[in-house]
Amino acid sequence: MTLVRLASAFALLSLTTAELAHAEIPLAERRSGYADMAPETKAMQDDDAANPGMLAVLDGEALWNAKAGTAAKSCADCHGDARSAMKGVAARYPAFEPAQNRPINLDQRINLCRTERQQAPAFPYESRNMLALSAYVGRQSRGEKIAPPDDARLRPHLDAGRERYNVRIGQLNLACNHCHDDNWGKKLAGNVIPQAHPNGYPLYRLEWQSLGSLQRRLRNCMIGMRAEPYAYGALEYVELELYLMWRARGMTIETPAVRP
């Protein structure tokens, strides 16, 4: 009896140790969600005339050049040609914003420009215009390698994001790593579990029939785990984004990607 109890205590102990010593995916084994897609979906992403995300990129280009707000300035008035000025920008967000003393993602950066420089109302999260402009800016980094900024001020937030990724949440009592580090490549219902790399956002998801941000995707996962999602723009999401970008460092940006 004592022996059994002892054995189960050991089993419990080793389980806890295994969880603590949880291994990240080795750099060389990382793969974009693209690799797991059907040939038809890959073809859709590869052809700019078939990728519905490009419709939003066109809308974003129009927004980039349109004057907005009481300052009557367009993005182009300050930044010039997005094709050169915005190249690589999406690859290094989230970044630290000193004025707010926290990291912000690309959408929040765009809205800061809107409210402070253009004196225009911020775009609501997940609105058509928000996604269009962020898809247009993100598109300029297609083919670039993800390069999270080496900024000491981001370190505590990166650690917080990593911790959140590894902490069990929700009624199903799962953490991100249980699917995306330990069981990627296997099936969840009919779908291949991806490694969860944020290298194509905002992306066109066939299930959504629209473009969506990384935070929408995170929200999706949290609802699936029966956890209460954070509000859009919450620091918790941005820290998680920060960790996911760090985890995907060096991978290629595909924005606007297509996913099933």
Partner: peptide, 9 residues
């Protein structure tokens, strides 16, 4: 010929 149009359907 390939065509793609934006519409909510």
């Amino acid at each position: 010929i390939k065509t793609l149009v934006s519409h909510v359907m």
